[in-house]
Design a protein around this nucleic acid. Structure first.
Length: 262
DNA sequence: TCCTCATCCTCAGTTGAGCA
DNA sequence: TGCTCAACTGAGGATGAGGA
C-alpha cells in the first residue's frame, strides 16, 4: 500500500453533493478552473437557494479536489458519461473520486463498511464511525488531535456520505441500515482502464485499493475483468497467479465513448 | 509585512425521532 | 398533535503556512 495522505475535515464542506456535482458538471467545460466555474455557476442561476459563499465552499472544497485534479480528467470523463450512464453508475464514480480526495472516507468504506457488510451486520452507527476516527487520530493520521466536536462531526459525515452514495440508509440518523451495494460493470471498466493508463501493471491492478471501495478482493476483481472480457471491452487471460490483459481502447476518452454506446 | 489560500472550527438554523 | 431534544448541515470566522 502506498504512503497515504493525512486525514482532513474537508468532508464537512459538503457530503456526497450528488445533485450539485451533476449540475456543476453541466456548467463546467474542459480547461475551466475552480474560480472560473464558481463565476459561471453564480451567473447561471442554477443554485438559487445557496449563497455565493456556500457555492464557493462547494466548488473549491468539494468539487475541485474531487473532480478537477489531474488536469480535470475526472470531470472531463464524468461530463462525457453523466448524460448517458445510469444515476447509480454515476454515483459510484462520484464515490470513487470523493474517496480518493478524502482518504478518511475511502479508508472508512474499506475498513468499516465492508468489514461490517461481509460480517453480516445490518447497521452501521455514528459510534462505529467515531471509533474509526478515534483510532485514526491515535495512529497519527491527522495533523493534530481533533477536538471532540470535530471528531463527532466528522464521524457523522462519514456515515452521511455513505448514505449519499447509496451504501447506507439516508436521512438524519445516528444508526443507519446497510444497503445492498454492488459495483456496476461500466464502473469496473472505467476503473480498470484508468488504473491501466496510470501505469498500474495488470497483476498489481487486481489488488489496487480502488476495488476495495466496492468490496472486491483480488479474485472478485478477476471475475469482473473476465466479465468485461465477455463484453469485448478488453481481453483477459489468466494462468495461475498471472494475469495478462489486452487493452482494446487507446485512451480514456475513447473508453467513455464506448461505454456511452454499450 | 501583507496577502492569499487552505484548513479547521464554531455557531445557528433545520430536520426528524421519540414521547406525552 | 405538539413539544423537546439530539443530530445534521450550511455558513462563515479564525488560524496558519507560504509566497511576493
Amino acid at each position: 500500500m502506498s504512503e497515504r495522505a493525512l486525514y482532513t475535515t474537508q468532508l464537512q464542506a459538503g457530503l456526497g453533493l450528488v445533485d450539485e456535482a451533476k449540475t456543476l458538471l453541466e456548467l463546467w467545460s474542459p480547461g475551466m478552473s475552480a474560480n472560473q466555474l464558481q463565476q459561471v455557476a453564480l451567473g447561471s442561476g442554477r443554485f438559487p437557494t445557496i449563497t455565493a459563499r456556500r457555492l464557493r465552499n462547494v466548488i473549491v472544497e468539494c468539487f475541485a479536489p474531487r473532480y478537477l485534479v489531474d488536469g480535470g480528467a475526472p470531470a472531463k470523463h464524468l461530463k462525457l458519461l453523466s448524460p448517458i450512464i445510469s444515476s447509480g453508475e454515476l454515483v459510484q464514480l462520484l464515490l470513487l473520486f470523493t474517496s480518493r480526495a478524502n482518504p478518511i472516507l475511502g479508508d472508512f468504506v474499506r475498513q468499516v463498511y465492508w468489514s461490517r457488510y461481509s460480517a453480516g451486520y445490518t447497521h452501521i452507527s455514528n459510534a462505529d464511525a467515531r471509533a474509526f476516527v478515534d483510532r485514526a487520530i491515535d495512529d497519527g493520521k491527522t495533523i493534530k488531535r481533533w477536538s471532540d466536536s470535530t471528531v463527532r462531526r466528522v464521524s457523522a459525515y462519514l456515515s452521511g456520505c455513505c448514505a449519499d452514495y447509496g451504501m447506507l440508509e439516508r436521512g438524519s440518523k445516528s444508526t443507519r441500515h446497510i444497503l445492498p451495494f454492488r459495483m456496476y460493470p461500466n464502473v469496473a471498466a472505467y476503473i480498470a482502464y484508468e488504473l491501466h493508463f496510470a501505469g498500474v501493471g495488470d497483476n498489481a491492478l487486481l489488488t489496487h485499493e480502488d476495488w476495495q471501495l466496492f468490496g472486491l478482493a483480488r479474485e472478485d476483481v478477476l471475475e469482473e475483468i473476465k466479465r468485461l472480457s465477455l463484453k469485448s471491452l478488453l481481453i483477459a487471460q489468466s494462468a495461475g497467479d498471472v494475469v495478462r490483459i489486452s487493452w482494446k481502447q487507446p485512451d480514456m476518452e475513447t473508453l467513455c465513448n464506448v461505454l456511452t454506446k454499450s
